[in-house]
């Protein structure tokens, strides 16, 4: 499980950073071509869609690293089993939310899969929308792995 999660995270970081690079380069192409008075119409769409991918991938990785900002007032105050219980509640909340987003995300992908990009009608909008279920799906996996750890803490607490 742990190895799989690490590999998943590594892959996701790579994808996120790659899209970040794509949109930077695309914007540079846009500036250059505009000032050379060459009409390139796809830059804005490619840049924005890559940006969407990189944000969603980054956000998922940040779930694994527990970097999304939260108030740790209560979690810090509690100790041992109580703390583990609270963490489990948080993990389950995130999983429940992401299961719904995953589910609705898949439906949205189905609805809009065949929509076209404006500047490049041969490309499908599905390639963009699918970032949502991928994000939600990986967030579920990361939260599950946290859940497993917190349940272990809870159990070991019981043994003591």
């Amino acid at each position: 499980m742990n190895r799989f999660v690490r590999l998943l995270e590594k892959t996701q970081i790579f994808v996120g950073v790659a899209f970040l690079c794509v949109f930077i380069v695309t914007i540079l192409i846009q500036i250059t071509t505009r000032h050379l008075e060459i009409a390139v119409i796809w830059t804005e769409e490619v840049a924005t869609h890559s940006f969407i991918w990189s944000v969603f991938m980054g956000a998922a990785v940040m779930v694994n690293r527990r970097e999304h900002f939260s108030f740790d007032y209560l979690t810090k105050k509690l100790k041992g089993r109580k703390q583990a219980t609270l963490n489990i509640i948080i993990d389950i909340t995130l999983i429940a939310f992401n299961v719904l987003i995953f589910n609705y995300g898949i439906k949205v992908v189905e609805q809009f899969w065949n929509y076209n990009w404006v500047s490049m009608p041969d490309l499908k909008m599905g390639y963009v929308w699918i970032a949502i279920p991928i994000m939600a799906g990986t967030m579920i996996i990361y939260s599950l792995s946290h859940l497993v750890k917190h349940v272990q803490v809870l159990r070991s607490g019981e043994v003591q």
Binding site: L20, C21, M57, A59, H68
Partner: peptide, 20 residues
């Protein structure tokens, strides 16, 4: 560069996910 890019992705995706 890879670390700088990752740090950028990390920091920006936090506030942008909140935006979403």
């Amino acid at each position: 560069l890879p670390k700088i890019l990752f740090d950028t992705l990390a920091l920006s995706s936090l506030s942008l996910f909140a935006l979403a």
